[in-house]
Structure formats: C-alpha cells, structure tokens
C-alpha cells in the first residue's frame, strides 16, 4: 500500500515544477513590461509594485487552471488510479497537493509584493500618509487576513466544484447512450455557468462589504460566509469520492 505522504510528495513534485515555470514566466513578463516603460515613458514611482501586482492576477488564473487540469487528470488516468491506495485518500492527497501548490504560489506573490514595496518604500509611504482617516494597522491586517482566508476557501471550493462537474460528466458518460450524453453535457455546462455566476456575485458582494467587515458587527457574518464556502466544498468532496468509488472509470487506451 502506498502511504499518504509518499503520494503527496510524488504528486506535488511535478506540480511544483509547473508552478515554478509559470512564476519564471511571470517574472520575465514583468521585466519586459518594466523595460518597455523604461524605454518609452520611464518608470514612474510605484510602477514596479503596480506592474507586479497587475501581472499577479492573470498568472494566478493560469496557475489555477493548470493545477486543476493536473488535478482532474489523476481521476481518469490508470497511471494514478492503479496506485494501491483507497479512493478517499487518493482524492484527498490530490486536492491537498493542488491546494498546497496554490498556497505556495500565493506566498511567492506576497514575497514579490513585499520586495517591490521595499524598493519603492519612500513613494508608497508618502502615498499612504496622503490617505487620511484610513483604518488603523490592526484592522487592516485583520481585513487582509480575512480576505486571504476567504480567497483560499473559495479556491478549495473551486477545485471541488470543477471535480464534481468533471466526475459527474465522466460517470454519466459511462452508462448513458451517446445521444443523451450530449444532452447531459449541455445541462451540466448550464449548471456550471450558473454556479460560476453565483460565485462571482458572492465574491463581488464580499468585496463590496469589505468596508463593513471592518466594523465589528459584520465579522460574524464574514466568518459564517467562510464556513459556508468550506461546508459546500466538503459536501462536494464527499460526493466526488462517492462518484470515484462507484462510477468514474479511467480512459482506456
């Protein structure tokens, strides 16, 4: 039997390499952008930090998409499904490995922000002091941390939702005739789009309410939201494991 830790290491090794490649590409793009500014208009105050932050977002999406592709491959490839480990463990290791790599990416981004902030410390400090009546440091830290945890929860739910859709499609494809398969696919796409819209609205609302988060009354609501997201993720994960055990087959050669 393969142990949890061994499998985690093996699965994460390739993903780690993948994330590093993407980070290198990100750095290259940032460098090119700054070089371009330098040659055209000159690098302005705060631009290094700004450019890094701006590229961070699309890079995150690339990382997320690539990791979820790797995540989903595991469920339908014999390379992984033949490994002597229970389906629950396989699923958990897989999800944890993807999540750990996203966390790693996030930490690297935070380091980038800190480094670029240090480089432009004087300018940024002046900028902050100009904003009067801003929140005190403690509240700001709390808010950032809150948003960070919410973000991570949504990422976990994102991963479980993608798996749920993929595994449902894969499971239904096995026992429905070809014509109804297409119908099921269409229905599922509609559900996915609906879910994505719902998540987007939810996130948007959270950001809108960001201000009220700082007032203590809304904190409970915020924590409840995070819990809600995690509960949905857990339910989805349980359904996913069930689907894996009962219906999801690997792709034959």
């Amino acid at each position: 039997m393969t142990s949890f830790g061994t499998l985690f290491k093996v699965m994460s090794r390739d993903r780690f390499r993948l994330v590093n490649k993407i980070i290198l590409a990100e750095l290259a793009v940032i460098a090119v952008t700054l070089l371009w500014s330098l040659m055209t208009s000159g690098v302005e105050g705060g631009e290094i930090f700004g450019v890094t932050g701006a590229w961070s977002f699309p890079t995150f999406w690339i990382v997320f998409i690539m990791l979820s592709v790797a995540n989903e491959r595991v469920f339908t490839r014999d390379t992984y499904r033949l490994i002597p480990i229970g389906e629950t463990k396989l699923y958990t290791v897989n999800l944890l490995s993807a999540f750990a790599m996203i966390l790693y990416f996030a930490v690297v981004q935070v380091i980038f922000y800190l480094v670029t902030m240090m480089a432009e410390k004087d300018y940024l400090l002046r900028l902050f002091s100009d904003i009067s009546g801003g929140p005190d440091t403690a509240t700001a830290v709390k808010a950032t941390l809150g948003m960070f945890i919410l973000g991570l929860s949504i990422i976990i739910m994102g991963l479980t939702t993608i798996s749920l859709v993929h595994l449902t499609v894969s499971a239904t494809n096995n026992f429905l005739p070809n014509i109804s398969r297409r119908a099921v696919d269409i229905v599922l796409y509609i559900i996915v789009i609906y879910l994505l819209v719902r998540i987007a609205i939810f996130v948007f609302n959270e950001i809108n309410n960001f201000g009220s988060l700082l007032s203590t009354g809304m904190q409970t609501q915020f924590i409840l939201n995070i819990c809600g997201v995690l509960v949905i993720a857990l339910v989805e994960a349980i359904i996913n494991v069930f689907l894996l055990k009962k219906w999801v087959e690997t792709i034959p050669n």
Partner: peptide, 28 residues
C-alpha cells in the same frame, strides 16, 4: 479501472486498495 456489477476477489481480498496492490496491469 472500470466499474461493473458482481464480485471480484483478488487473493481473497475485496477491498479496492488491497486489490490494486495485488495486481500489476500494463496500462499505465
């Protein structure tokens, strides 16, 4: 790798993970 109905016992064991450890398959 495929899911059917009925019982399959490998080396007296029906638990999936144990079965997998008792089988070496060329499709990987």
């Amino acid at each position: 790798s495929a899911k059917g109905s009925g019982t399959i016992t490998v080396c007296g064991d029906r638990a999936v993970a144990h079965q997998k450890s008792n089988v070496s398959f060329t499709e990987q």
